[in-house]
Structure formats: C-alpha cells, structure tokens
Design a protein around this nucleic acid. Structure first.
Lengths: 192, 192
DNA sequence: AGCATAACCAAGCAAGCGCTAGGCCTGTTG
DNA sequence: CAACAGGCCTAGCGCTTGCTTGGTTATGCT
C-alpha cells in the first residue's frame, strides 16, 4: 500500500471514481467496477487507497478544496460592490458545480455515506466556503441591499444553487451566467 | 405475497422503513434491519412487499402524495393575494418537510436509488407539486411582485426550502414560520 | 365444524461484497 | 551489476446480501 502519496495515478482514479459514484451512488459502485473503469484488477486499487471510504473522501475533498480556491479568487478579482462580488460568487459556484459536476454531485448526494471522522474533517472545509458567502451577503445587508437575516439568506442562496444540480441541463438552452443573474436579482433588493 | 393491499401493517412498515432509510440510507438498510425494527423475521417482509425497491417507492410516494394534498388545501384556504398564497405554500412545505421528516428526507436523499420505472411514476407526482408552486409564483410575477423567470424562481425557492433539511434544527431556537417569512421576503419585491 | 385468509417463521441458497496475501514485472538509483 | 520501489496481478477468504420455499399459527366468516 502506497496510500498517502499524491501520484498522478491516484488523481486519475479519483476522477474516475467521481464519475462512477455520481452515476450509481457510492454503495452501489463496487471496487470491481472502479478497477474495471481504470483497466486494472480490483485488488490493485488498494495499492492507492487504504479502503473504499478513502476514495469517497478524496473525491469530495479534492472538489471542495478546488471550489474554495476558485471562489476566493473570484471574490478578490471582482469589483468591490456587493452586487459584483455576489455575482462573481454565484457564477463561479455554478461553473465549478457543473464543470466538475461528477465530483460535486458526489459531495452533495453522497455526503451521508462518509464515516464520522472524514465527515467532520470535510465539514470544516465546507464551513470555510459557506463563510465566504456569508461575508459577502452580510456586507450587502449592511449596505441595505439585502433584507432579512444574513445567515438564512446565505443558506437559501446555496440551497437554491445546489438544487440546480437536480434540474439544470448544462447542454440545454440556458447558461449558468443567466442563472447567476437571476439568483442575484432574487436576493438583492432591486435598485431603482 | 400479499403485495398490493394497503393493510395497516404495511403502513406501519412504511413508517419504520422511512426512519431507517433516513438514518442509514437505503442501500445500507438491510431487510434484516427492517424486519428487526418491526419485530418480525426478514423473510416475512416479502409478504407485504414484492421486493426492497417497492418499500422505498412506497415511502416516497406516501409522503409526496400527502405533501401535495396539504399544499392544495393550504392554497385554497389562504387569501387570494400572492403574498398570502406564497406564504401558505412555504409554511406548509416546511411543516410537512420537518414534521414527516424521515420520509421526506428519504425522498430528497434517496431519490436516485429508485429504479427507472418507479422514478418516472414519482416524477409525475413531484411535477404536480412543482406546478402548484409555479402557478402561484407566476401570478405574483404578473402582478409585478416577482422579477425574473417564474420557472427559475420556482426552482430556486424549492431548492432553498429543501436545503433546510440539511441545516435547520426543528428543536432549535428558530421556527419554520420565521423561515417561511424570510423566504417570501427574499422572493417578492418589497412593497413600498 | 369447516374453510379461507393474513401474518408470520425456520432454514438456507446463490451471488456479490470488501479486502488480503504473496508474487511478478519494469524502470530508476547507487 | 544489485537493490529497491511503484504498480499491478492471481486467487481467494469470510462474510453479508436480497430473496425463496414450504410450512405453521391465529382470526374471523359461513
């Protein structure tokens, strides 16, 4: 077992696993399916991961960490106005969500299959992401652009966006930028 | 096998199954766990259901059908104004969601474990529910109380509400009525 | 009494599961 | 050259899974 290394082979496996976990769910994806999809035998998987749980954790951790980095970049690049920052957050959220949609789908749908240890660890990552949103939304509230409680609005916003994973078709007529606009319009009080 | 009847015993099983499916997930809940929780042997389960899949389908169908009935009642009882109707919908949505939270949690989390046949059947039910929301929101838009596309706003609203299943604590300091107020305030343009 | 039916049990089958053990190549390093 | 390590394979162990079969018991109807 070579478990802790970050080899390219391991990265590739995480990508493949994300796809299968999304298509069939974690519990129904067997180690043999994963191995087949990689062109190796099932036993060889455990050269890269200690157990199946670790693969799930790696899939979610990778994608979440990546989303956090992208979101921070987007905020720092955007104009200082609340509307611009919020729009930047919404856009990059939808883009990462539907771009790396297998892995993020896993993070959304298979969260509860994590064991307690991994879940706690990943909760901190997710909290950091949510804190970024809270910060931007609370600034908007202080500027009078948002009514209501910032924490609730933050969670409503993230819920609305994450729910798009269930109905939005990236290959359809609508694009993510349009969705982001609609979300920001819904949250912010219209400036006359 | 007595499969199609609607005996009280079957109803009780559906309730128990909802709890276990929510706590451990569908795939990790074995027929032996279900039987234990009911005080019977695993084989006896198949007197009430053709297979395990049918139990999942029954859990989701029951709760969804119930939610649809409640929502229709709430709309017909509310004042004719858009705000009242939307508020009524949001309140009853959150109440059924957190009241019958095991079953609705299953509908949200375990949707993808349905087989194709069952899923299509239940999609129609869910569409009917969504249509009710669309109707109310589109009327609000025609009255100038909502900006943006009605279909998108509808899905944003339902996403925001369903997401509460992940963070809202019914035993905490906040109540569902407050949440419903916040949602309606977020969706409707503030009346001056 | 005679019968039907619903609800359940005991026992177990065939398949599939995660994971392990030990060994085989191949390329890199001293 | 030898030593090593990363990546993989073969073979299979021990266990759990959903589900089946044939039979038993309790209840109520005629």
């Amino acid at each position: 077992m070579n478990v802790a290394t970050d080899s390219p082979r391991r990265q590739e496996l995480i990508r493949v696993a994300a796809r299968l976990f999304m298509q069939q769910g974690f519990d129904r994806t067997t180690v043999r399916m994963l191995a087949d999809a990689m062109g190796i035998k099932s036993g060889s998987l455990f050269h890269h991961f200690a157990d199946k749980q670790e693969i799930l954790c790696a899939v979610i951790e990778d994608s979440t960490r990546n989303a956090l980095v992208s979101a921070r970049k987007a905020v720092s690049r955007a104009d200082a106005t609340s509307r611009s920052q919020l729009l930047a957050l919404a856009r990059v959220h939808l883009d990462t969500l539907h771009d790396d949609r297998h892995a993020h789908g896993v993070a959304l749908y298979e969260w509860r299959r994590l064991n307690d240890e991994d879940r706690e660890h990943l909760t901190h990552l997710r909290d950091a992401y949510e804190a970024l949103w809270y910060q931007v939304i609370d600034e908007a509230r202080q500027a009078g652009l948002v009514q209501g409680d910032s924490a609730i609005v933050t969670r409503f916003a993230l819920g609305a966006l994450n729910w798009t994973a269930r109905w939005f078709d990236p290959d359809g007529p609508m694009d993510t930028a349009r969705l982001a606009d609609e979300l920001v319009d819904m949250i912010l009080i219209p400036s006359p």
